[in-house]
Design a protein around this nucleic acid. Structure first.
Length: 863
RNA sequence: GCCCGAAUGGCGGAACUGGUAGACGCGCCGGACUCAAAAUCCGGUGGUGGUGACACCGUGUGGGUUCGAUUCCCUCUUCGGGCACCA
């Protein structure tokens, strides 16, 4: 073998071998247990970023590990190729999104290959090609048939200058990102998918998904947000009279209602605004407000009285109606009953507008003060000032109120969900066309299956002024499928989350051009291990679970949950640097181009741009992203040190589930380690072949090394297979190598033990640094390729030892160590611990009160 | 604002089920090799006190449970992720 570690040569050779052997092309084989290992497919933004390298290395380590454990592994890859960035690039450079996207894919595919991932490229899929997206359209039509897809109006961000719809991301401080124009909200017709029809099932199933992280299940459960309460009716004589409905989970506080607040879009608000210009302009202001929930929740709470009154359903008192900018039309009935005494938001609102606050819940006679909100105000307690409900506890009060309201026809128990239906219409070019034709006579007509796919033209170049599809006559002009009259194609495209909601199914049969899915889905699915960033914990994963349920209900797949086991990797973060010009867009600078220093006198951190030496602002440490320009290009690592070093460093830097703040200090250490391993093997084999191991004739140091080798194997097996802490697995192998470096190579059995230990180290690292270990395995004299090697078993005999070292504590503080026989009795351990000089010093003349023994570990003497 | 996480040496992190805090790596310091440097190898490295054995302090803050808490409970702070049209 070569003396010098040459990553470029070693990696090219290993990759060539895998290619020639078709090592990663997965074949269905009923006699073998399958393992479908899937990483979230990338958006082809141009180049791989560190998040990709982290994601795909985790996946590859698991895939290779499971392969060595005998599983028939499928690890596919594809491209989430529709989306906004392609249009932005088109606007900036005048290149059609199709060309930009496909070029990016070609480059990123080369990068993935250079990293040595064991991917089955024969199943590659690309969502922006008709071969894939035709099935989006086909399934959308099935959803229409079942009433799961339907049309209603939705609100979008409208840039009046560019006359275009903007994504939330393109709205900065209420203004369009390109024009700086004030953004308006517009209501337009859109298609929705009825995910709420599955709300209960999506929630319930979370209970029986033990192999999903607890935190992801908690986030999804909260997102679905089931809440049980009462839908209360407030009768009124406004207009032709009627009932205003408001949902509450706190019917026990109903006697504390001093106002009701409705959303700006609510019919009562609209009614009141008629002939009330002041209210009209307030409603307009609310409508201009933010569309994003985070901004909505943090904005100042404002309201205005409508001058209208409702009747309290129990007391009959008059209740004023207000319009509140914090009331969401999309939740419940778009109205809330205001109980300022026991709801923090209502309290704040009532104080601001001098509305009465009436305490109706008491907890242990605590003193209620109107001065400031206290957290106990919203806790469950006993009704007071509530007439016939006085003295009732929460449950009893809610039941009593429910019964009374129900008898009056003014209330019913109701389950409400936070989850809303999924709006999939996008007024954008670079997405999957929604297969609908608009006919003057027939209305919205679904495109018949035999006319699918509706092909997206690929030559258009968006210029920022609206969807180019809407100006493309060749696309627009169409005959109505029903009546044959001149008609117009729908120009909205689908949300890209549609594409990613079923791609994992398609990998089973990506080559089938006759059907969306086929029999192979039954062999490969569900996905055994899904791996992706924690940022997808809710939306993508919930949409995929919903989509799979629909397909299950139409009999297309035999399961409801697509991902048996989920692993969420932490984000890769880096500092953000920017300058904000007096006008125009914020400009971001890559951290590589920024010099950070600390001023000695003031301890102030100073960041300057290398090119002009002038200061830039720091925007904190956040996820690496193209839009914030704080990414680090992993290609530079691969170019300088090779793929194995990049992989090893990424896996060693932090446990995969944890957030990783980028720093490339330590890359050298990873490289150095591979070189040391290489050198250790080289020096070992250059003395000729090692003799066979004779386990019965080992010296104490030889036994010790053997023990450590097998302990390492046991730890790595557990760390890779169960704990998924690749950093500690690597550390264990490093320790083994450190021990081996101090181990003499004098005798024949020394060399035999070394041979075994080195082979163990190489095998243990092979899922992580597959190229170098591929070469080292051959170097160690093996004829077969490492990729075909089964994962070894631990020799439990090697782990045996006769004595054990125990810690001795006095009152929980470490005071000494003892070494006793493994099977020593408690009495022997006592005597041994009490005879330690230092221990005796701390016991002194005080009597021993208690002795606690943790077998094999520790003795604690309590005095 | 709401939901979900996280916080340990100069830095990344380890301590898996409540039982030796700081494994492993980086950096730094000292040494070897070298004309010199790089590379490599050897030794040291939480803080304070002590020549030393060793002692005391120490896991974001404040409290609690326990023989024993980085680990469990409560409080607060800071940071990260998500909030439905970025993907």
């Amino acid at each position: 073998m070569q003396e010098r570690y040459d990553p470029a040569a070693v990696e090219a050779q290993a990759q060539l071998y895998w290619d020639q052997q078709h090592s990663f092309e997965a074949k269905e084989d009923d006699s073998r247990e399958k393992y479908y290992c899937l990483c979230m497919f990338p958006y082809p933004s141009g180049r791989l970023h560190m998040g990709h390298v982290r994601n795909y290395t985790i996946g590859d380590v698991l895939a290779r590990f499971m392969r060595m454990n005998g599983r028939n592994v499928l690890q596919p890859m594809g491209w989430d190729a529709f989306g906004l960035p392609a249009e932005n690039a088109a606007i900036a450079n005048g290149i059609p999104p199709a060309k930009w996207t496909l070029d990016n894919i070609a480059h990123m595919k080369r990068q993935l290959k250079s990293l040595g991932y064991g991917l089955d490229w024969s199943r590659e899929l690309t969502t922006c090609l008709p071969a894939y997206y035709r099935w989006n359209q086909w399934l959308f039509l099935r959803m229409l048939e079942k009433g799961i897809a339907y049309q209603k109006t939705g609100v979008v961000n409208w840039d009046p200058e560019d006359k275009t719809v903007l994504a939330n991301e393109q709205v900065i401080d209420g203004r369009g990102w390109r024009t700086g124009a004030l953004i308006e909200k517009r209501e337009i017709p859109m298609y929705y998918l009825k995910i709420t029809a599955y709300a209960q099932d999506l929630l319930d199933s979370l209970q029986s998904m033990p192999d999903w992280p607890e935190r992801v299940r908690a986030m999804q459960a909260n997102w679905i947000g089931r809440s049980e309460g009462l839908r209360v009716g407030f009768p009124h004589a406004i207009g032709e009279g009627g009932v205003l409905h408001a949902f509450t989970t706190r019917a026990d506080t109903i006697m504390g209602v001093t106002f009701c607040a409705v959303a700006a879009e609510h019919p009562l608000a609209v009614h009141a605004a008629n002939g009330n210009p002041e209210l009209q302009s307030f409603i307009e202001e609310c409508k201009r407000g933010p569309a994003v929930e985070a901004q909505l929740a943090t904005q100042e709470k404002k309201g205005m009285p409508t001058g209208l009154f409702l009747t309290h359903p129990i007391s009959g008192a008059a209740v004023p109606v207000w319009v509140g900018n914090y009331v969401l039309m999309s939740y419940g009935d778009g109205a809330v009953m205001g109980v300022p005494a026991h709801d923090e938001r209502d309290f704040e609102f009532a104080k601001k507008y001098a509305l009465p606050i009436l305490q109706v819940i008491d907890i242990d006679g605590r003193r209620y003060s109107l001065d400031a909100w206290q957290s106990w105000y919203s806790e469950h307690g006993r009704c007071v000032n509530s007439g016939r409900y006085d003295g009732l506890e929460y449950e009893a009060a809610v039941s009593a109120v429910a019964a009374d309201l129900s008898s009056k026809g003014l209330g019913e128990r109701r389950t409400t969900w936070r989850l809303r239906d999924w709006g999939i219409s996008r007024q954008r070019y670079w997405g999957c066309p929604i297969p609908i034709v608009h006919c003057k006579e027939c209305g919205a007509v679904p495109v018949p299956d035999d006319q699918l796919p509706v092909i997206l033209p690929t030559h258009l170049v968006p210029d920022g002024s609206g969807n180019p599809l809407a100006k493309d006559l060749e696309f627009l002009d169409v005959r109505c499928p029903k009546c044959g009259a001149q008609a117009r194609r729908e120009t909205d495209t689908m949300d890209t989350f549609v594409d990613s909601s079923w791609y994992f199914l398609r990998f089973a049969c990506a080559d089938n051009d006759q059907a969306m899915l086929d029999y192979r889905v039954q062999y490969w699915l569900p996905v055994d291990q899904y791996i992706g960033g924690i940022e997808h914990a809710i939306l993508h994963l919930l949409y995929a679970r919903f989509w799979t349920r629909f397909m299950h209900d139409m009999g297309a797949v035999p399961f409801k949950e697509p991902f048996a086991r989920l692993f969420t990797q932490g984000m890769v973060l880096n500092e953000v640097f920017f300058r904000k010009p007096a006008s125009g867009r914020q400009q971001y600078f890559n951290p590589a181009d920024v010099l950070v220093s600390v001023e000695k006198s003031t301890q102030r951190r100073l960041a300057v741009l290398r090119s002009d030496g002038k200061e830039v602002e720091s925007g904190g440490v956040v996820t690496m992203s193209k839009s914030k320009n704080n990414g680090v290009d992993p290609q530079s690592l691969v170019d300088e040190f090779g793929a194995d070093t990049a992989r090893l460093f990424m896996m060693f830097a932090a446990p995969p589930e944890q957030t990783l703040e980028w720093s490339d200090e330590g890359v050298q250490g990873a490289y150095r380690f591979i070189k040391r391993l290489w050198k250790a093997v080289y020096e070992h084999v250059s003395q000729g072949p090692a003799a066979a191991l004779d386990k019965s004739a080992l010296t104490e140091p030889q036994r010790a090394i053997r023990k450590q080798a097998h302990q390492t194997l046991a730890k790595v097996t557990d760390d890779l297979g169960r704990r998924r802490t690749f950093n500690t697995a690597i550390a264990a192998v490093m320790e083994l190598l450190n021990a081996l470096a101090k181990f003499p190579q004098a005798s024949v059995q020394d060399r035999a033990v070394s041979q075994e230990a080195l082979a163990t180290a190489v095998i243990c690292l092979s899922p992580i640094i597959p190229h170098a270990t591929h070469a080292l395995w051959k170097g160690l004299g093996h004829r077969t390729a490492l990729i075909e090697e089964p994962w070894p078993n631990v020799d439990t005999e090697a782990l045996q030892s006769s004595s054990v070292r125990m810690v001795v504590q006095v009152n929980g503080k470490l005071r000494g160590h003892i070494s006793v026989a493994v099977d020593a009795s408690e009495a022997v351990i006592h005597d041994s611990a009490l005879s330690d000089v230092n221990v005796r010093k701390f016991i002194g003349s005080v009597g021993v009160r208690k002795i606690i023994i943790v077998p094999g570990k520790l003795v604690n003497i309590v005095v």
